[in-house]
């Protein structure tokens, strides 16, 4: 990333999916790599359900405006996040959509990857770790974050009882991302 180059990421879905937490984990990982990060959130006053977006602005220099307005990357963990986010996508943006909860996305000049994020989480034993699966896939497909840094951030923000499953979820996310990456390379 060049100095003053700005990257905008949104992890969108519904309240209770741990989106703000995963945004903070990614922010922490990037911050530890020396990047300037601004992580913001829009959510509704309910602890479960309602829309929830966790946004990151990542730069090498200072962040002047900390909110997103032109997304480079969008993760959709629920179809509810499509409407408020779609118009913000940059041309050629990367979109990662969950196969179960966001099976359809509008047409657009962006590259959409349907990945089984929540299904993978359910297979691991808890749908609650879909946010971590998404983090792994996002890290691979954007290439924005070192795996070591991300793993440290996940460890630092996970209670003991969830540590094993969260690390498994991160690994699965990386696997899904790499698979997608290879498939895209082969197709090209």
């Amino acid at each position: 990333m060049k100095r003053d180059q700005r990257m905008e990421i949104r992890i969108g879905g519904t309240g209770g999916q741990g989106l703000i937490l995963s945004g903070k984990m990614l922010a922490e990982a990037l911050s530890s790599m020396g990047r300037r990060v601004a992580q913001s959130q829009t959510y509704e006053p309910t602890s479960r359900g309602g829309f929830c977006n966790s946004d990151l602005v990542v730069t090498e220099g200072e962040v002047d405006y900390p909110l997103t307005s032109a997304l480079d990357c969008l993760v959709l963990l629920d179809r509810m996040a499509v409407a408020p986010s779609w118009a913000l996508l940059k041309t050629g943006a990367l979109v990662i959509a969950d196969t179960r909860l966001c099976p359809e996305t509008p047409a657009g000049d962006c590259s959409v990857h349907q990945l089984p994020l929540t299904r993978t989480a359910i297979e691991l034993g808890s749908e609650r770790v879909a946010n971590i699966v998404a983090l792994g896939a996002l890290a691979v497909l954007t290439g924005i974050c070192d795996r070591g840094a991300l793993e440290r951030a996940v460890r630092a923000n996970t209670p003991k009882s969830f540590l094993d499953i969260n690390l498994d979820a991160l690994a699965e996310g990386y696997r899904l991302g790499e698979q997608t990456h290879r498939a895209a390379a082969t197709a090209a």
Partner: peptide, 9 residues
Amino acid sequence: QVIAQLTET
């Protein structure tokens, strides 16, 4: 609210 709940480096 934005500045309050904004996390920045």
